[in-house]
Design a protein around this nucleic acid. Sequence first.
DNA 1: TCTGGGGTCCTAGGACCC
DNA 2: TCTGGGGTCCTAGGACCC
Length: 408
Amino acid sequence: MKTIFHVDMDAFFVSVEELFDPSLKGKAVVVGGRPNERGVVSAASYEARKFGVHSALPLRTAYKLCPHAIFVDGHPDRYRDCSQRVFEVLHRFSPQVEMASIDEAYVDMTGTERLHGPPLRAAHTLHEAMRAETQLNCSIGIGTSRLVAKISSDQAKPNGILMVIPGQEARFLAPLDVRKVPGVGKVTERNLNVLGIHKVGDLAKLDESSLESRFGKWGLALAGKARGLDAGGWFDSEVGEDIEPKSISHEHTYNEDTSDSEVLEATLARLSEMVGRRLRENGLHARTLQLKLRYQDFSTITRAHTLEQPTQVDTEIFEEIRALFRKNWRAGRKVRLLGVHAASFEAAGPQLDLLGESKHERWEQALAAADRLRDKYGESAVSLASGMRGRFRERTHENPAGLPGKPK
DNA sequence: TCTGGGGTCCTAGGACCC
DNA sequence: TCTGGGGTCCTAGGACCC
């Protein structure tokens, strides 16, 4: 029998912003951007939530609901730092910690009783340690599975602790809306409601086979979840198993839609660079590159291409992405969003050409040097993308390979 | 309500191979 | 020349999560 904690930070982005600006405390705060910008709410303070503001709500809508709220931009680097501190606190309680996202974690506390006492006591100690060391509040759910721990931390919010006694899982879950089950979103909820299933208890009454015949593999997992089991996919894995990334992507939504091909291609160059840099930081080489294109009417296409040899080189990424863009963009149509996505990670293959050192490798060296400069002097110190319009014309006309120039 | 950005996982069809 | 049944890879799209 396992003891799993799910630790969920309360209003994480808002709380971190309050650490940097205590005057925000107790006020209606919306993190995500200016009220007149395109975009959605990343996080809202409990004060703002009283007015119906919640994450994923468009900023403009949030402004209508709560015009007196303070709108602040997000600071991803601050959140990453705090998240790291949260991890360090958790890691002292158990070696098996898994950050499920920037603001929540699973901790496998099985077998820690001698050190930390019974689960509820350990949770209180953890809660206080978190408060003392990060000045942040969290909620803790305790259960015999990830699923039950996760749902109980949600019920414990804000700033609470809730333990589901082993054996009581089904009783705890039965009265909850099916929507509370992780993985059941709007669409699945609607599909279940049509069948007269509203509560997790309704779901638990159905037999596995009828759920499987209606929803396939997912239905089978759902039957298990209704009984509090970690059924299917990710939920089955051990807490703290190293999970390496499967994809890296960057995308950008314009504040105003555009059909200017030079602007669009400059954006793709910048996004390709960002993806390349992340690949190099993580020591990854991607074989599949994907363009994402969203038009003004929100219709969205993705177009992918798989390379012979995996890459982490900006220009190689950009060339593929640009080719996909030129082949698939209906010229003249206004674009709302562009994205660059890299996946199918592999070890780099042998890249040697007849001269020994390949252009690919020379590029890798040049980029590694640029990365080091950026680390040292900041993000603006080196940019291959700035002034992209001019530069890429140079690259295509005078220097077709786009290689670093040799000294004259 | 005029809809971000970063991910994961699943499905389904076609190509291709045995 | 009316034609099976895998298995794997690739691509496109969609549901879902924070």
